[in-house]
Design a protein around this nucleic acid. Sequence first.
DNA 1: GATGAATGAGTATTCATTCAT
DNA 2: CATGAATGAATACTCATTCAT
Lengths: 196, 196, 196, 196
Amino acid sequence: MSPRTSKQFDKIRQEKKEIIMEVSLELFAENGFHATSVSQIAKKAGISKGLAYNYFESKQDILDELITHGFDSIFQNFDINKDEILTKAEFAHFIKMNFKLLRENLKHWKLFFSLMLQPQIADTFSKDYQEKGAPMFQMLFNFIGSQGSNDTEGDLMVISAMLEGAFLYAVVAPDIFPIEIMEEKIINACFKIIEG
Amino acid sequence: MSPRTSKQFDKIRQEKKEIIMEVSLELFAENGFHATSVSQIAKKAGISKGLAYNYFESKQDILDELITHGFDSIFQNFDINKDEILTKAEFAHFIKMNFKLLRENLKHWKLFFSLMLQPQIADTFSKDYQEKGAPMFQMLFNFIGSQGSNDTEGDLMVISAMLEGAFLYAVVAPDIFPIEIMEEKIINACFKIIEG
Amino acid sequence: MSPRTSKQFDKIRQEKKEIIMEVSLELFAENGFHATSVSQIAKKAGISKGLAYNYFESKQDILDELITHGFDSIFQNFDINKDEILTKAEFAHFIKMNFKLLRENLKHWKLFFSLMLQPQIADTFSKDYQEKGAPMFQMLFNFIGSQGSNDTEGDLMVISAMLEGAFLYAVVAPDIFPIEIMEEKIINACFKIIEG
Amino acid sequence: MSPRTSKQFDKIRQEKKEIIMEVSLELFAENGFHATSVSQIAKKAGISKGLAYNYFESKQDILDELITHGFDSIFQNFDINKDEILTKAEFAHFIKMNFKLLRENLKHWKLFFSLMLQPQIADTFSKDYQEKGAPMFQMLFNFIGSQGSNDTEGDLMVISAMLEGAFLYAVVAPDIFPIEIMEEKIINACFKIIEG
DNA sequence: GATGAATGAGTATTCATTCAT
DNA sequence: CATGAATGAATACTCATTCAT
């Protein structure tokens, strides 16, 4: 007879929100934000449309929370000291860490690639993404320089492109470009590029 | 009705179609297929909605023709002899050719990246894209092998990723990654990777 | 469970009901019945939506009780002996009493004006309102006649309109038509009209 | 085979818009803006919901055009010279003109009374209404003064209230307060009030 | 060829109400 | 007594597509 405690409510809320976000991530990543309807989300989540709006203000709001959550999952685990100079072993480990996070967040990455291409969908995404990525670029830059590259900026561009491309392949054609195999090759290629 | 008249009609038809496709490409690339309405297309093309349906069976049909046309623009210019072994100079020229075609078809490429990420939008796109790209991969593969790489497949993966990443960057962040600058660096990096 | 305890419960119940009604009156009067949601009411009353349904059967029920309560506040205080003939002083006092009740029940009046204009919202309102007002009209009629008017019915119409208009102004434009000032003027005008 | 001329399209558009506005006025006036759905409007107008949006940007837009149109119908016909001093006969004629316009625009008036009570529905309504009415008040004020009233402002208030009340009665209870009868009585009452 | 009026199914969102706890 | 999760029907609005002219 007594009402549920606020802790119980919190738990219910949290669980439902997570289901909705999980389902939404899947649909947004696979079909795109605009091609995904709230009805689809509700159906796949096994809830009524109305309930989705009990937890999120709008479809856009779901996306926004998904982005924030994705940023956290992918970047928070780094906690990069961008001024530290890495050894080669540390660099290799750093790249592996990146691929590990990629493997664990494939759907987030797929969503992110979509958002890169259609920045209007989430207006601050591009800016936020660049901000989040900045320390990583800085660290890469420092490492490349420390290894005696004679075109630090150029090497950074090329290596960044290679990583971005590998990530894109991992997301859109994982069968043809298996992450596990690419990982090792990419690291080696980095050293070849830097050392010239 | 002389044949000349009908030829003129054909010309008019062709020109109108081209305007519609141009405008559609712009909108699809920038805002996405689903976020673009036929009304927008008609308005931007300066025609009535009805007329668009005179030239195309459906919105989907516009996209399909755009894809075909894009494939032609980008790949037809190659006419690759995939079994020919390139010299280093020819390879460099080949990469430059690719970047030239990128520069000339930025919007097509942007659209293509979107379609890679949402294959359902145009169901045969991924397959067709792979088919169109196959000779290029073959040729790359042959070149890498001919240069004495001791991990031809691995190098192919890495170089492909680098090119794909560079193209993506050129499309989504041309200010930060200017095509002209990347072009040279990428070619050099390719040689470093292959030669080890 | 002593009777005292149950009495206390009753008191609590009554107080909660009053809060809900007060809040609802404010929102219904200001924003209209249809534009007011039960959520808004619950939030402003500091209770849960569910609890509102513990006290009232429906949103409509809140309105109905509000109307009844409004009728009581406004008309009960009169207890008019409609057959009694008033002196001029008594008439002036009667009008003043009306304005006093107006001032004390501005929100009820605002709600009532809305209901006059949209009778479907509360189906018996118009009828009830007329019934409640009948004795007042009768009394006015008697007074006008007793003062020697030679068009009792006409004067009744005109005076009623004047009062209704003054009340409407007091509700929608109190800054431009301050009740205190109108009060005196209206009384004088009544005498002028009747005496001709 | 040739497309309709733009004149023909204009005619169609104009006629459809008028039907939609007529139907909307009826429903808004009778049931209120919020309680009227676009589906109802479309159904009553004998068109599809979609078509309504072909002609109006939103439900709000229908209301806004209705207000503008109502202002025109009611006030434009006056073209008051607010500085001219009226004779008694002219004043009587002016009031009669008002009642005539009331009779011809009963639904607009009903809508306007609703909007007075819920100004949020159409945010500029109250301001616009006051602006439109200002010359009339000025003219009334001048007339009252010219007739030797010793409380011009007070009389203006009282007479305005009487007119407003009469209009409200005409709108909500035309059976009990027939416009034709009130008209004459109101004019007489005005003179009594002014002359004291 | 060309127009834009017209449709209807679909979309995001709201909200009165119910109910397990 | 009290909570707020949950529902489902309704709402405003959009849009690909058709069609008479």
